[in-house]
Design a binder for these strands. Structure first.
Lengths: 108, 108
DNA sequence: ACTTGGTACTTTGTTTGGCATAGTACTAAA
DNA sequence: TTTAGTACTATGCCAAACAAAGTACCAAGT
């Protein structure tokens, strides 16, 4: 295993948190989210992102509205629901404590 | 999904790093590792840890020696190999940069 | 009009890896 | 010699990331 792979593994664990964080900034459609993650070096591919958004929508954390585009088919713009915001807060705390936990293993 | 579940997801991504870090302190057998992870609130179960150790051994990152126990069957004491140490260093860097990446998503 | 290229979303199948469960084996104590 | 505790192994299931192919919509060029 290379570190490329290691990063991929790490990414999996926090994909939902990442998507929630991106949407925490405001509504966005799949390509926006993909772009934001890419900028943070957390690239995900179509085959991962779309099903993930659908799952999160079905879980009630996200909602979406259709919006026409000038350069192609209509887009699904996702927003956090109330329950999504609550989850985001909870997961932010969880993330912090998790990072501390892993870091605590570093030395003796 | 509750935060319990979220933490479980996060944990998956860094299990190998955690095991490497624990072994970075010195050799240990499965229960030692399990205990160390538990203390860091990163509990893993038998069904996960044993196969993981076997995979890492097969990948050449770990080695083990048998040691008799006074209270049960012999134990496999694992140590990092040279390649395991190199991987640990690489994954430590990866982890740091990964945490930064996720944190960079937090605010706009 | 029809084709081409770009964009957006969907669907299907594969693979990986964590986990539950059951099983084997060794030791010590009752 | 049975029981309990510990340590490791083997089998099978399931969720989720990913790859790849497909559908559909739009606009621009011929």
């Amino acid at each position: 295993m290379n570190t490329e792979n290691a990063r991929a593994q790490m990414r999996k664990g926090v994909l939902e948190l990442c998507v929630l964080r991106v949407l925490g900034r405001g509504e966005a459609y799949a390509s926006d989210i993909s772009e934001a993650l890419k900028q943070a070096d957390l690239l995900v591919v179509e085959g991962t992102l779309y099903p993930l958004l659908t799952r999160m929508k079905n879980a009630g954390w996200l909602d979406y509205r259709w919006e026409e585009s000038k350069s192609g088919p209509p887009r699904k713009y996702y927003q956090l629901t109330e329950s999504g915001r609550i989850l985001l807060d909870a997961m932010n705390s969880e993330w912090t404590s998790f990072v501390d936990a892993v870091n605590s293993l570093k030395n003796s």
